[in-house]
């Protein structure tokens, strides 16, 4: 009897691992394909049967896309109008500023909601509902409005719109972390003589730091990869990386998969670096509330 039970358990485990492995393969394949394509020479991009490994691997895609290296621009895939490094800078400025603003104001609002109920449950829900509006709906009026006030095609314009569209997430996420900080801990600080600001900075902020970092990364990913609003609002002057990426799929450039993949990998790496730097906080941030109490 005991044999059968342990055996059944083992079979279940095997099945479980098999299913998960297949799922993992399916999920990881596109990522692998992009990385692999970025190292392929042009003849292998479309080859059938496909080349699963770049052979021989080449850096030419990277050199061309990122540095517009001369020796490669003479090819038919010459890309003259693209300035990925400028886009990288644009994206960095726009994503970090808007994310920073969203988390800053989001957590201030969240604190007010959590402690003083400055927004009722209904208002909080309405705030989240703002996110349910498909961005394409607001794009036309927004672009008209931005043209009128001179924000069209500017970094400030995009920072503002990203800040406002991600604010609901920031409020909701940071609120859940603030809710986890027991009121009594704050009150203990208060009765010991701390002012409200002191309490927030010395007690609340350190306790929700991991949550803030997790929120920051979450919103950074959203703003870093936002495409639609950027496409409409920043036509030429301030292209961001996703815009840059899309240009490799256009009618003027043809389907230059290798170059596009090289750009895509480059776009992903900064986020991964940020993720690795803050990984300690991420694990804590996303498991907040499950460990305590």
């Amino acid at each position: 009897m005991a044999m059968t039970k342990s055996r059944r358990r083992r079979i279940t485990m095997i099945i479980r691992y098999a299913v998960l492995s297949v799922w993992a393969l399916i999920a990881f394949f596109p990522i692998y394909w992009i990385v692999s394509t970025s190292f392929k020479i042009d003849t292998q991009w479309f080859a059938w049967p496909p080349f699963y490994f770049p052979n021989p691997p080449t850096f030419s895609n990277y050199m061309n896309v990122w540095f517009g290296a001369e020796e490669y621009t003479s090819t038919q895939y010459a890309i003259s109008s693209q300035k990925p490094l400028i886009s990288l800078w644009n994206s960095t400025v726009i994503a970090t500023c808007s994310t920073f603003l969203a988390v800053l104001f989001g957590s201030i609002i969240a604190y007010g909601v959590s402690r003083y109920r400055v927004l009722s449950d209904l208002r909080m829900f309405q705030l989240l509902m703002l996110r349910m509006i498909p961005p394409i709906v607001i794009v036309a009026p927004l672009s008209l409005y931005y043209t009128a006030v001179g924000l069209i095609d500017t970094r400030t314009g995009l920072i503002l719109v990203y800040f406002l569209t991600t604010l609901p997430y920031a409020v909701w996420m940071t609120k859940s972390f603030i809710d986890e900080v027991p009121r009594e801990v704050e009150q203990a600080a208060e009765i010991l003589g701390a002012s409200r600001w002191r309490t927030v900075f010395e007690i609340v902020l350190p306790l929700i730091r991991s949550g803030l970092v997790a929120t920051f990364l979450f919103i950074l990913i959203l703003t870093w990869s936002e495409y639609l609003l950027a496409l409409i609002i920043t036509k030429t002057n301030v292209a961001t990386l996703p815009i840059e990426l899309s240009k490799y799929q256009g009618s003027t450039e043809g389907r230059v998969y290798g170059r596009q993949a090289a750009l895509a990998v480059g776009i992903t790496i900064p986020l991964m670096i940020v993720g690795v730097i803050i990984r300690k906080h991420l694990a804590r941030g996303f498991s907040f509330g499950m460990v305590r109490r």
């Binding site: 027991p182 009594e184 801990v185 009150q187 203990a188 600080a189 009765i191 010991l192 007690i203 350190p206 306790l207 305590r292």
Partner: peptide, 13 residues
Amino acid sequence: LGMVFQSHALFPH
């Protein structure tokens, strides 16, 4: 005044 809470309310960090 000084107060002691049921939950202790120590500063965990």
